[in-house]
Amino acid sequence: MKVIVPVKRVVDSNIKPLVKSDGSGIEINGVKMSMNPFDETAVEEAVQLKEKNIVTEIIVISIGEIKCQDILRTAMAMGADRGILVTTDQAVESLSVAKILKHFVEKEKPDFVLMGKQASDDDMNATGQILAAKLGWAQGTFISKLELSEGKAKVTREIDDGQEILELTLPAVLTTDLRLNEPRYASLPNIMKARKKPLETVALTDLGIDLKNSLEIVSIKEFSSSRESIIVDSVDALLDKLKNEAKVI
């Protein structure tokens, strides 16, 4: 089976994001950028499936500035076979990303698309489902377990009160929950090998896809906790505060 895994370059999710001094966006200058952790889970799953000889080819795709090459190389060091980078300086929304991905799905004809359920920067949780709709494919979202067989994918989905198991007809779009696996660190020899794997770069403007952004960012601000952080020295003192000050017990 052939799989496409889209990956997004984001501010490293372990770093606290800061708003630029002019309030126009998030500061990314000098900030560590990494692969979206949800996409990392998708890459790992694809690589594990290749190791089990279920998947034969893994194509990773990213959209953004030329620096996105670094996460494509990381994905190839983890085990992906080749990369495609669609270059653009513009921010692209989920709807546009889905349209770009559809272009490559139609060209490459994978058996399924495996991707993070959301990106850790905008947390929109939409691209996979939009792509599935645009392709008219089945969708399996927020999956924590994947079993593939001839023409079918059995997925376990993480839902509000437990888990739901669905059987999807392939081709399908699958989006990953972090519980699916524990992504590996690429070894040095594999990082070296990944440098020789094919990476195709194409400008978004050359694809001839009509895109427009619908969402305008009016303002952004850091969430600030206004809590007082009163440290008490005993359980009695705590219960007194909860009962007489906060009045929650």
Binding site: D122, E216, V218, I220, K221, F223
Partner: peptide, 13 residues
């Protein structure tokens, strides 16, 4: 956005 550490005000067109 960003796991709740940032609040974005967005306008849809």
């Amino acid at each position: 956005i960003y796991a709740g550490s940032i609040l974005a005000t967005v306008k849809t067109h």
